[in-house]
Amino acid sequence: MSDKEIKNLEAIFEARIDRDEKIEPKDWMPEKYRQTHIRQISQHAHSEIVGMLPEGNWITRAPSLRRKAALLAKVQDEAGHGLYLYSAAETLGISRNELYEQLHSGKAKYSSIFNYPTISWADIGAIGWLVDGAAIINQVALCTTSFGPYARAMVRICKEESFHQRQGYEIMLTLCKGTAEQKAMAQDALNRWWWPSLMMFGPRDEESPHTAQSMKWKLKRKTNDELRQQFVDQTIPQADILGITVPDPNLKWNEAKGQYDFGEIDWDEFWQVVKGHGPCNKERMEARVGAWEEGTWVRDAAMVYAEKQANKKVAQAS
């Protein structure tokens, strides 16, 4: 194809997205669109399955049978959501195993929030409330993104995730209505998870070079800072109901703007974790790579067995 032809196809392509038409896997698409989507969808998928680990850490220690079942179901949902997202990425011509290799080699990123440790039961509440709360803000916007398989996966995920944030908030509420020790546990979790949750929305707008392109392709509907503001505004009243406070001395209501002003994120910490040096980056990767490598003989056996069975059927038929 000549450059001119490609330019022409690109113009038609962009016009389709502007008209809110969905792009489907076999449609012609610019190489950059394909690559950007593989990157973003797989990052999202990796985040789901790495995200199973910090919460999975508390399945055996959940304090009641009801909480245990809910947590187990939630972590299982995350496996399901990872699976939906890997499938969406696979429609773009890359296999799940290739995506795993990118994760295991450190080439692919996942959400940094999961590199923080879960050291108390209240952390399970805080993750559901704050981390899922932040994730939902991003995910709801993605239900109308331009790439069909991604949008469909997000619709299913949003529907299923609606219980996740509620179960987290309910854990926090129970703690805050409990003994002083329980309430202190909730406050401690909020202290540790608040800033990492704000970091989930990514760098400040002026340091987020891909925003314009992502907006055009509807991979983003609002900027990082807009979403972060929305999160703060909706979360503070929820903290008030719990009766615990976010660890930010600069937080105050700005009457004129009708929103909260809040303090500055520790960007050094942000970049340190993104670059792989957070508290648990190493442990998370070891757990994922370990599960994959230990599972090799199981996956291989299933394939060999399937072939043997297929051959038997052929032999019986002839």
Partner: peptide, 27 residues
């Protein structure tokens, strides 16, 4: 429950968790 997140494939992880959830429901 100890296995959740550490199985040989996502699909088997989900299946074994379903079994665990059934067992906890019965219990």
């Amino acid at each position: 429950g100890e296995l959740c997140g550490h199985g040989p494939s996502l699909e088997t992880d989900i299946a074994l968790t379903n079994i665990a959830l059934d067992l906890f429901g019965q219990t």
